[in-house]
Design a binder for these strands. Sequence first.
DNA 1: ATGGTTGAACCTCAA
Length: 272
Amino acid sequence: MAFRTGIWNVNSVKARLPHLLDWLKRDMPEIVLLQETKCTDDAFPAMELEELGYNLALHGEKSYNGVAILSKFPLEDVRRGLPGEDQFGHARYIEAVANLPGRAVRVASVYVPNGQNLDSDKFPYKLHFLERLGAHLLALLAYEEMLIVGGDYNVAPYPADVYDPARLDGNVCYHPEERARIRAILHLGFYDGFRLINPPPEGTHGGGEYTFWDYRAASFEANRGWRIDYPLLSPQAADALRDCVIVKTLRGLDKPSDHAPLLASFADAREG
DNA sequence: ATGGTTGAACCTCAA
């Protein structure tokens, strides 16, 4: 069957619950990958989402980070954290198998560390996280499954993915060391689902299509944005991809997240 | 313009 996958950094699932519920009722993605839920699993608004028909797989922590998978299909083989990760580390990765009728789809929700600034200890931590993520995704690629890894990667991979690539080159989230690591993951054999549907424009200027706008300095109004949220797809998932859009309207509401969601549509396995 | 805003939880940190 055909299905849709939503991807959204909500910047607090509790603060964003009204917008989240409205969006899910309107666009009805069967699978949803959330980042920055910012609450422990016992505080997650499970009842409201279960009422919409979702099964939940949660990996949260108090105040910061937190990722979740919502699925209208049964979830199995839930894994929390990257392999070898400290059990008490940040809640930044969750993976599960969604059992669609006649087809299993592996999905993951990832929230890559922001890195803060180049002088911070958090910057090498981010680079190391990207390397560990790449090692894990390489292992998953060997399964030859439909695999959808959606999240906030906190890295704009290419010049078209930031509003002013010349000025921002070297900034955190658009630093050559970060771009090299996210592009290394792509070069393993993953596809950026947004770019499969929306090829980047020619030249080195910003492409104008973004998923994140800073709350400060009227960034959204001026479209000073960054494309740092995207679906990374295995070849099997890329073949089934039919559409991928940024739901920009949600960034323009009152009390928005600083990220806009994405909605990716996948075809039935039997379609050509 | 090295500013600006938001969320969670505490009076500051992370983004």
